[in-house]
Amino acid sequence: MEGSKMSEWTGERVLVTGGASFIGSHLVEDLVAAGADVRVADDFSSGEKVNLESVRDDVEIVSGNLKHWEFADEATKDVDTVFHLAADHGGRGYISSYPANCATNMALDNIVFETAALNGVDRITFASSACTYPTDIQQERRRLSEDMVSFDERGGAYADEVYGWAKLMGERSLQAYHEQYGIDASSVRIFTAYGPRENETHAIVALMAKAYAEQDPFRIWGDGEQTRNFTYVRDITRALRLASENITDATPVNAGISRYVTINEAAQAIFERLNWEPSEIEYMTDKPVGVRHRAADTTRAEELLGWEPQYTLEEGIENTLDWYVNNRDKAYVQENLETLLHER
């Protein structure tokens, strides 16, 4: 809990939507450790109850679809703080293939915000995304700062696919609820999170699955020189907590490392950790890869939250790969690899 005010959460009644998900379950663990009284709302479409195993006796779990008003109303009752992470999402292949699914996030976000407001919730922290940033400025190495998105200037927004537009509208909606209802609000733009419990539709775990299954030739989408700033999940959850503690006016902050990491570099680090190397790499240039380069300017997070990443890429990959190998049967991954890579 370094860097966080542990006492602030003691006895706080907290709802984590999507709390059985990859990021959500880590956040729930952090909040329980800090003394919060936590409720998890999840439809378990991608989240899993096993993710909450370590805190099962310490949290309330309610199962349902937050796009349904009655369930959202019930979930947000008697709560002080909401961390809103629930969303229909996946890796690049998923958001490219299922834009309509991703568009439903706009309804989901507004129902959660409205029911929270009507139930007198004090503060809401929204899990936003680096996909809110204009795509045309990400063809070269240029770190993304929060002021590169504007709701006040004509042409100030140009998000990444429908998923990015939905996240951007989520930010704007939350700002509106802050303005109208006086709710303390914050948005954290998450940059390429990875870690234990993430599924194989996301880049780092997809690479791990293919290497663990000893895929040869090893397939990499694109030419492998596209970059991301892979950010370890525990750094992300700390940013979410700090944003909730320190920001009240819906100001968005980035949570990501500033290092550009190519897909080829990430794959190589995984090969080394597994002590395995493919005889050939096949570059699949017909696959969706998204923007060319993406890394975060974290100046605002440092200034407003005192936040900067604590985990190196090497530490994060080691932790994640250890979890993956210990929790996945090799024969199963080999047999079901294509399904795992494309379904959330």
Rank of each mutant, 00 (worst) to 15 (best):
R238D: 12
Q268W: 06
T320W: 06
E308P: 01
D223E: 12
W221E: 01
N327E: 13
F230T: 00
H293K: 01
R294D: 13
G290Y: 06
G222K: 02
T299P: 06
V291Q: 13
T285P: 00
E225R: 13
A243F: 12
T299N: 14
I257S: 11
M284S: 09
Y232M: 10
V253A: 01
M284H: 07
K287R: 15
T251G: 01
W307C: 08
I317P: 04
E314N: 13
D329F: 07
R238K: 15
K287M: 14
T299I: 05
Y212A: 03
R234A: 08
V253N: 00
W307Y: 12
E277I: 06
L304E: 12
I257R: 12
E318D: 14
S279C: 00
L305K: 01
L313F: 12
Y311R: 11
Q310N: 13
G222H: 04
G316P: 02
T298G: 10
E280H: 04
L274I: 06
D322C: 05
L321R: 07
L313K: 07
R238T: 15
W323S: 04
T299F: 11
R259N: 11
A250K: 06
Y283S: 00
T227I: 05
V291R: 12
R219F: 02
T285Y: 00
K287A: 15
P217C: 03
I247H: 05
A267R: 10
W221A: 08
G316C: 03
E303V: 11
Q215M: 15
P309Q: 10
P288V: 02
A239H: 04
V325P: 07
D216Q: 10
A213W: 09
R241F: 07
S244G: 14
R234T: 13
E225P: 00
A296R: 10
V325N: 06
R228F: 01
M284K: 13
L304C: 04
G224M: 11
G222R: 09
R328L: 05
A269I: 06
I263N: 01
W323E: 07
N319A: 15
V289Q: 05
A267M: 10
N254Q: 05
R228Y: 08
L305V: 09
Q226L: 12
W307L: 05
G316M: 05
D322R: 15
S258F: 00
W307H: 12
P252I: 01
V261L: 06
L305W: 05
V325L: 02
T285I: 14
A269N: 08
E282C: 00
P252S: 07
N264K: 13
Y324W: 13
D329A: 13
G256S: 09
E280N: 05
R292W: 07
V233N: 05
S279N: 13
P217K: 07
D322K: 14
A213V: 09
R292S: 14
Y324K: 10
D322W: 04
V233K: 03
A266T: 10
A250N: 15
D322S: 15
A296L: 09
T285H: 08
L242T: 03
G224Y: 08
E303P: 03
T312G: 11
A269W: 04
I281V: 15
E282V: 06
G256N: 08
W307K: 09
